[in-house]
Design a protein around this nucleic acid. Structure first.
Lengths: 195, 195
DNA sequence: ACCTGAACACCGTTCAAGT
DNA sequence: ACCTGAACACCGTTCAAGT
């Protein structure tokens, strides 16, 4: 899962200490972000990892890059969960259950959900591709079964769930309520077209 | 609207220059936030307002206080709009239309929607009371007409709309799509109960 | 090739002195 | 009663020197 075996990547090019520094930085970031949120001091992260601040910047040029390294782990687990739930005989319920896991999985600390929304909507979207591919299977089955309104885009569903996660970071019960509300519809009969 | 004529407030206690400084700070903040987002330099705001940084802190002890002063204006307009729409013969459509105005009204600059979610969910909630009261009339009529599912709380509807605003700050078309999706329901038939 | 950390720039916040 | 801005603390980011 963490191996980078692309065909033409130079073999044995990554020194052991480089790998180790990267792993230490990610572990330190996880700990710091969980304590202080996504805005935690990067100097503190480097200190906790036992490396210089320059090494942090070399591995992760921006804070978002560091956050996406943490998100990649969460995305992996959520992709697994999506593959499991894709077997469900009730695709609509399965999609909703997965969306609950998604919201919960991207709110490990304040600011994580906002970073997830950026990474999901980003141009490159490297980190989130496995997640989106696994979710697409689940989403398409729900669509085929008629559980999702025609014309609905997965990207919009993920963004809406990301928005719910963003505003309920410290309140898991509210997250469940808002997700149920958005799933069932706030105003089911209203005219959908703007203006 | 901006007069503070509470019964036992000391009359003539607010010096003209104090009022003027406050107004200048708000105007400067609006300009700076629109240019740089809600994280704009507070020193820059003070400089643009032509006052010392200490004066900014005296008037607005926290950045959120300054943001809420801007939000109060937006809330006033949205309260007016809610009162107009409360006359509508189609309460469900009126509520959805107002929610569009709400999302649009709290996304004048990046970070405004997040501040709105804080102010709407806050304990004191001074700034947002007029908004919530006017919205409640509209919301209750929609509920009585059956347009809103029984048991739905206005606070949850506002928070959900705030979440949509937060993740679509730079993309008004996405805001419309997500609002339509949440209004109609992402998965209308799914089991609503968590677990 | 990678790491280190000093150096620089910038900002938030407080508070003693002034009016 | 309010205003000012110097002073302090802290953090992000770069990059010359070292291994």
């Amino acid at each position: 899962m963490t191996s980078d075996d692309s065909p033409n990547a130079p073999v044995r090019t990554v020194r052991a200490d480089v790998r180790r520094n990267r792993a230490r930085l990610i572990a330190a970031a996880r700990e710091m972000f969980q304590r202080d949120g996504a805005g935690a001091s990067l100097e503190g992260v480097a200190r906790l990892a036992g490396v210089g601040i320059g090494t942090l910047y070399r591995h992760f040029p921006t804070r978002q890059d560091l956050l996406e390294a943490l998100l990649a782990d969460a995305y992996g687990e959520l992709a697994d969960r999506a593959r499991e739930l894709a077997e469900s005989p009730s695709p609509g319920d399965a999609l909703l259950e997965w969306l609950r896991a998604f919201v919960s999985g991207i709110t490990a600390f304040p600011g994580m959900a906002a970073a997830a929304v950026v990474s999901l909507g980003g141009e490159r979207g490297e980190a989130s591709r496995p997640l989106r591919e696994a979710a697409a299977v689940l989403f398409d089955r729900a669509g085929e079964s008629g559980a999702v309104p025609p014309g609905t885009a997965l990207g919009d569903v993920l963004r809406l769930a990301g928005g719910i996660a963003t505003v309920t970071e410290r309140d898991p019960e509210a997250a469940d309520r808002l997700l149920s509300l958005a799933a069932a519809g706030m105003i089911p009969g209203a005219a959908a077209a703007p203006r």
